[in-house]
Amino acid sequence: MRVRILGTAAGGGVPQWNCACTGCATARRAGTHRTQDGVAVTGDGAAWYLINASPDLRTQLLSTGDLDPGPGRRDTPIRGVVLTTAELDHTTGLLGLREAGRLDLYATATVLAALPAIPILRRYTDLHLHQLTTGSPVTLDGGLTVRTLPVGVKVPRYADPRPDDAWVTALRISDGRTGRSFVYATCLPAWTDAFDAFIAGADTALLDGTFSTDDEPARAAGLTRTPREMGHLPIAAALPALRRHPGVRFLFGHLNNTNPYASAPAPVPVEVAHDGQELQL
């Protein structure tokens, strides 16, 4: 299995267009940037699946040669999109895929019911919806299977609240031929026993790196809500759990513009993912 990390920033990217915080100012001066969170995975190098579709998707696809179209005029290696949330920074890029000949979209029933993009996409492409259900693995082209675990109930601001539904999920993507697996959980409000069991035995995991510490939002932006109240477990709080899984390579993504690791090296043992990074499992 190959995993291409398309974007590593939280909503708005780094630097954010209307933000002059220290992190955004530092990124502008350095000429560096992070696009919004998402990855692409393949089991055979031919069939690729996007995990989430950020507003930066077009830029991300153009910078990833493996996802170029061809050999036919409208051929594409992208077979579908797997969503972990209904948030705008994970779904707005779907509209950029409207000219696909066929688009397969995988998400929980909660997310599919909320997405305003679905009726629009139906007008443009042959849209096929696939419901992700806990305990029912889904088979993808190229020898991959996907398992899901609901991890959060954060409702996007545009959507009607539906408490206790599967608004936020973690994914475990496995290669049936090699037995290798990749866990994607970039929106994780708490490290529960269920998540600990879900991640056990994985080879690599991309985790929630939105905030570095519990006090970061207050210290860097004057916010009153804590990271967990915003649906994100800070990196410092996740580190003790990582020690229980010494065989797993952990990376952190979905970095907020206030996170110092978005523009400066992170201390060991924190490994921060970067845009364009490829993981071979």
Rank of each mutant, 00 (worst) to 15 (best):
D44K: 08
L62S: 13
R29Y: 11
G31P: 10
T32A: 14
P15G: 06
G65S: 14
C19T: 11
L57V: 02
C21K: 07
G38L: 01
T32M: 14
Y49F: 15
G23F: 02
N52D: 15
Q16P: 04
D44P: 07
I51H: 02
Q60H: 03
A27E: 03
N18Q: 15
W48G: 00
Q36M: 10
C21S: 09
A47P: 07
R34A: 10
S63T: 11
D56R: 01
T22F: 09
T59Q: 11
Y49T: 00
D66L: 10
P55Q: 03
A47E: 11
D68N: 12
S54L: 05
R58D: 12
G12Y: 06
D37E: 14
P69E: 11
V39H: 01
G11F: 01
L57P: 03
G65T: 12
T64G: 00
T35Y: 05
A47Y: 07
G11T: 08
Q60S: 04
T64F: 00
S63M: 08
G31S: 10
L62A: 15
N18E: 13
P55L: 04
I51Q: 02
G31V: 09
Q60D: 07
L57A: 01
C19S: 15
A40H: 04
G11K: 09
D56K: 02
W48V: 04
G31T: 09
Y49A: 02
G31A: 14
